[in-house]
Design a binder for these strands. Structure first.
Lengths: 139, 139
DNA sequence: CCTTGACCCTGTAGTGACTACAGGGTGCAT
DNA sequence: ATGCACCCTGTAGTCACTACAGGGTCAAGG
């Protein structure tokens, strides 16, 4: 009954678009359970590991922190529990993303304004430098 | 001709909305030149430090990296140089910000979609968990 | 049998931009 | 003289990895 479908860390990493070091790091911080080892001490992963790592990667791609993913994984394992906590985590994350979005939007428009004023003369009358300087004071 | 206007690290920090530790850190990484010291070994800052730190903080607020600010400071000191390099740095940064903005926008809409589907029943049929799972496979 | 090369192992240190102590000294007011 | 706010240095921690260094394993080719 040995698993016919066990894979090395390299193929697990490849099939989830993850670096090998990152897989090992997920194990170290407890997101991914330690897999079985081969006679030569290689990690051997089964389909459950693949599923879990895919979950982690998808979560990261959606910008969840590792801590949030840890919580989501714990919740996902407890299938009878209400979905409310999951919803709370997701909404908190969305709020976070929307705050960052607003910040970046403001930032981009400030930058565009500063750049638009630059006539590309000498530094002495560069609008960009001036915009960064506190008082527009000469040197 | 001793500077009447020398300030301790605490008041410099306060007047630039910076933490004291951060000011010391800027000095350590060479953004802020080491100031004079009092008899009791306290750092004593003059108006030039205030100007420079303000520049740094404004740059950071606009999302420039410390490395970019280091370059901008070097350029700003060389007042006869053409403004071109400044413009290049600023435009590169804007491009960077715009990339992040696009990423975050996509992310937010994915998140909103996922969250919108959650009926908040049990975890077993939580759409959010499902959206994170690779195959929608049951456990 | 030997070597080459791709892969794997552990462990440590580095990234960026700070932040947070620990363990002390200074300066001023009460 | 004693309390308190402030300052000093130095080190370690944050987040999510990434990059080695210094080795071991394994399959294929000569």
């Amino acid at each position: 009954m040995r698993t016919a479908s066990s894979m090395t860390i390299g193929s697990l990493a490849e099939s989830t678009q993850t670096r090998v070091e990152t897989v090992r790091w997920y194990e170290k911080v407890g997101l991914l359970p330690p897999p079985a080892r081969s006679s030569g001490n290689y990690r051997l992963y089964g389909p459950e590991h693949l599923r879990r790592l895919s979950f982690i990667r998808r979560g990261r791609a959606l910008g969840f922190t590792v801590e949030q993913i840890r919580d989501l994984l714990a919740l996902a394992d407890d299938r009878d529990r209400s979905c409310g906590e999951v919803d709370t985590i997701a909404r908190a994350h969305l709020a976070d993303v929307e705050r960052k979005l607003a910040d970046l939007t403001r930032l981009a428009s400030e930058l565009r304004e500063v750049i638009g004023q630059c006539g590309c003369g000498s530094v002495a009358d560069c609008r960009i430098i001036e915009a960064l300087s506190p008082l527009g004071e000469p040197a």
